[in-house]
Design a protein around this nucleic acid. Structure first.
Lengths: 198, 198
DNA sequence: ATGCTAGTGCAACATCCGTCGCATTAATAG
DNA sequence: CTATTAATGCGACGGATGTTGCACTAGCAT
């Protein structure tokens, strides 16, 4: 017996699909600036009130777009070397930040205005870091880096400069940065920077 | 002969001071959320239009608060070791992000909405990184790290994880992170991660 | 089919946000 | 002191942003 109050029927799902499609389309055509509840509702052929009631604000819309995307098929790169994996990962991050439609960029911007978007962003990054731990495990298996290397700290060291450069400093894209940051993290890991006992 | 159109007289300066004080007070009492042009104007005893004309938006106000602060007296820490300097620097960054009133945090949030705030932020960070280059020079002088070590890349490697943790991931404050990130950067620098010729 | 009701459409409303034209004030030059 | 003219005050406006009450539509159970 399902919850009698729930009603995930055809119309609800259909409207959700219409609205989320409208968000993606609007994002692709006019970017994050013109992404307002009104615009999305009009494009989806849905009344403003419906969007406000179900999603609350723009951040809620983006968060739902992200959850709906549910990119559960994503896997971290596997190039055969730690440096190759990290560099490829950083390239993906850099590409995602410049991507059209700029979903990633929009989500980050929205996370400063909406709690829902901030949560979606936290969930996304947490998920990604967990999935990427296999990169470190493989490197340990290849004896590239010492056993006991902390995966999370290594991954943050490798990727943080890319985010810092593009999101915070908003500096022009630096093609060498992904590989450079990856190389730095590898050298630090080899030197034992991420092993527990000092 | 000064420019006859300029008029930096008493009233202009007085109103600027009133408005900037109001921004700081409002920020301290109610945070960044309730920091609107209207609120600030009312608190400063100034008309809304005046604020809109001179500062444009909330980002402009924050940018001017920052410029007015003009912390030209700031100097990077000098502890006697590269690791000590970087760890102290990261501690300062972490403290600035938790500081009350949250000027730094507000400036970052505003930089996603206002071009003026984004510029102020860029200027601030650029200035800080340039000033911090002396940390790397001193370390080279002490023969802690190889000559030719790129200051900027070393500094970004050391500080980016702190920003990433607090601003993007919005994770709870990690007291060990400043020292850890500093240690990582030192190890990478010693291993030659930031020297030009490979 | 029929009734129930979650979900939606609709319109009116209250704010907030930013801009504009014009009157007024006050800093500066002479 | 007087004239000039930035800078400010003021009110009104147009548009965007959310909210609310009510009617209605369409899933779902029976």
């Amino acid at each position: 017996m399902t919850n009698p109050t729930a009603r995930p029927g055809g119309r609800t799902a259909r409207i959700r699909a219409q609205v989320l499609d409208a968000v993606r389309a609007e994002l692709a055509e006019h970017g994050y600036d013109s992404l307002t509840v009104d615009t999305v509702a009009a494009r989806a052929g849905v009344h403003r009130t419906t969007v406000y009631r179900r999603w609350g604000d723009v951040g809620g819309l983006l968060a739902d777009v992200y959850d709906a995307a549910g990119d559960d098929d994503w896997e971290p790169p596997d190039t055969g070397s730690l440096h190759g994996d990290l560099a490829a990962l950083n390239e993906e991050i850099q590409a995602a930040m410049v991507m059209r439609p700029p979903i990633m960029e929009a989500l980050i911007a929205a996370s400063f205005r909406s709690e829902a978007a901030a949560d979606a962003q936290r969930r996304l990054w947490e998920d990604r870091y967990v999935r990427c731990e296999v990169i470190v495990e493989r490197a340990i298996g290849r004896a590239e880096i010492p056993p006991g290397t902390g995966a999370r700290r290594l991954l943050v060291t490798a990727t943080a400069p890319v985010y810092h450069h593009l999101v915070l400093l908003r500096a022009p894209l630096d093609p060498a940065l992904p590989a450079d940051a990856a190389r730095t993290a590898v050298l630090a890991a080899v030197a034992g920077a991420f092993t527990e006992g000092s």
